[in-house]
């Protein structure tokens, strides 16, 4: 098997290093570089990225300095304080609790749950879709029947029922409960792309090269649907912020003593609050709109970066 080598003159190690270096200079830019170039070429997207990252950092760090149980104590004297009164930057709610502080802690909780939910459900959905689509046949058939069964269940109702049955839950268990249901859409999307991708000859070439199926799935096929994965994950992150918020708004999300964007927006349930005490719900609503818009904008840039034909930057 050494045959090939002996027919061509030996190359020394120094030559090899030199040649490699020379080749590396000519190399195409790495994925990280491409995404960064794409952000630099698109000003609004860069701003969106800065807003989202800075906001998350601020919320996480600032919430460390807030004593949550003290913050949630009722203080009748500050009943519906308007913004800038009594040192309340964004006013206070019916319990005299600082809206600004609740917003910070609530944002951390909501974003944390959305992030956790996105990581867990996307990872699971992607793996499910890849495996189902790549292997096909009986594996696919079985996995799709599980999918169909899960689809049949009324999701929101199931979550509400589970949350009602388990009376002792916190942010982590809530995230896990959500995750059981939110991988479905991702898995279907990934499966259909994997079906198409697996038919391409580079997969056949990998099989004849002796690469094992798992490696083909996660190292060959997955990188080729990365643009889909990135876009789907960013968009589900934006969507997942709405999941917890929506349920908390309905009163089935986090327990009442744990603030979240949803519980803040729930202040709008009272018709008085909507017009007269707008500061109790408006900042949270505005925050969600801005966050979701910024995140989907980032998703679009990531898609462009992943898909070479759509790039704006010419690098």
């Amino acid at each position: 098997m050494k045959q090939t080598g002996e027919n061509y003159e030996e190359i020394s190690t120094e030559d090899l290093k030199r040649l490699s270096k020379q080749a590396e200079k000519e190399a195409a830019p790495s994925a990280g570089r491409i995404i960064w170039n794409e952000f630099k070429a698109d000003r609004p997207a860069l701003i969106a990225l800065v807003i989202v990252v800075a906001f998350i950092l601020f919320v996480v760090i600032a919430s460390l300095f807030i004593n949550t149980s003290k913050m949630m104590e009722t203080n009748i004297l500050d009943y519906f304080d308007a913004p800038f009164k009594d040192g309340f930057l964004l006013g206070a709610d019916a319990g005299g609790r600082s809206i600004a502080q609740q917003l910070i802690v609530g944002s951390r909780n909501s974003i944390g749950i959305a992030l956790g939910l996105t990581v867990i459900s996307s990872t699971f959905g992607i793996a499910w879709g890849l495996i189902s689509g790549y292997f096909g046949g009986f594996v696919d058939w079985g996995m799709q029947r599980v999918y169909d069964f899960m689809m049949m269940l009324p999701m929101t109702m199931m979550i509400i029922v589970i949350v009602t049955i388990i009376n002792n839950y916190n942010a982590v268990t809530l995230t896990l409960i959500f995750s059981c249901f939110y991988w479905l859409g991702t898995s279907r999307l990934i499966r259909s792309r994997t079906l198409a991708e697996s038919k391409k000859d580079y997969v056949a070439a990998s099989i004849t090269s002796g690469t094992n199926p798992w490696k083909i799935i996660f190292r060959e096929v997955m990188p080729n649907i990365s643009s889909l994965i990135i876009v789907d994950t960013t968009l589900s992150f934006a969507e997942n912020i709405g999941v917890e918020t929506g349920l908390s708004y309905l009163g089935f999300g986090l327990p009442a003593q744990t603030p979240s964007l949803g519980t803040l927006i729930a202040n709008a349930n009272d018709p008085n609050n909507i017009t007269e005490y707008w500061w109790t719900w408006f900042p949270a609503a505005l925050e969600i709109i801005i966050l979701c818009l910024a995140i989907s904008y980032i998703g679009q840039v990531a898609r462009r970066a992943a898909d070479s034909s759509q790039r704006k930057s010419n690098k």
């Binding site: 195409a28 391409k200 000859d201 580079y202 004849t208 090269s209 080729n224 990365s226």
Partner: peptide, 20 residues
């Protein structure tokens, strides 16, 4: 497949676009 290999009909689709 160490002994039997294939040259594919469509060269573009037979090379993984994500690999060097």
């Amino acid at each position: 497949n160490r002994d039997v290999q294939m040259i594919f009909q469509d060269s573009l689709s037979s090379l993984n676009p994500r690999k060097r």
